[in-house]
Amino acid sequence: MTTYIYGIAAATHPALPEGMGGIGEPERKVRVVRHGKLAAIVSDSPDDLRPKRRDLLAHQSVLDEAGAGGAVLPMRFGSLAQDDEAVVAVLAELADHYEERLNALEGKAEYNVKAAHDEQAVLHQVLAENPELRAMVEANRAAGGGSYEQKLHLGESVTAAVRAREESDSVEVRRALEPCAEAVSVGPEGTGWLANVSFLVRRDAAAGFVAAVEELRKDQPHLELTVHGPLPPYSFVDLGPAEPAEDAASVR
């Protein structure tokens, strides 16, 4: 029977979600595997585990529950060990590192911020700032919409202006929220947003962070901001001075 690992916490964590329903159908019960000062939050794993919505939610829910009571290092979804002994071995091997990370993340949570442009608003902005673009729009309109080439030319110019705006706004989002965070992790670009940034925020400073988001919303009405948090600190598990330099790829 393989063991699924949700996360790692201190053995002294006061409220690990033992007995809670985890991944699988039927739900596998969450167990705790302890070794020394550390505890791994685990459950059995179904043989055919797949990244289904229900299982992703279960992973997140277990970590959310555990994170509410104390620091947890969230595993990436889908980590499997051969058995509980293999989990113990890992806890033993990297104990110092995990303890350092847990200390560093105690009382902190991740807030993920995604920003996108309100298209109408950002078009207004780039046109207002750029008389040449505006002239092109007027010319096209006067020509009943403009020829295919004219449209293409206008569209290309506008796209470039919007792109530039996305880049500067991405910097602005980070600049505005960084002061309220302990650490920042920039996520991958993707369709649908111009900034995807995670902030590590002290739980006792969360209200200030949320207020800063509101402030940014007010200052930059052309930005649509989506905030998710408090989340387990997915983006911050590997940072820190005690990060081991060992790297499978470079060793071999």
Binding site: I5, G7, I8, L49, R50, P51, R53, L56, L57, H59, Q60, L73, P74, M75, R76, F77, G78, S79, L80, A81, A86, A89, V90, E93, L94, E110, N112, K114, S185, G187, P188, G190, N196, S198, T226, H228, L231, P232, Y234, S235, V237, D238, A248
Partner: peptide
């Protein structure tokens, strides 16, 4: 909401070499 944070759950978080990861095909 799940869609918005799914990349955190799938692409970040702790990875331990000794553990296997399930296939994310699909």
């Amino acid at each position: 909401g799940l869609y918005d944070v799914i990349e955190l759950i799938l692409d970040r978080g702790l990875v331990i070499d000794a553990f296997v990861r399930v296939s994310l095909v699909g």
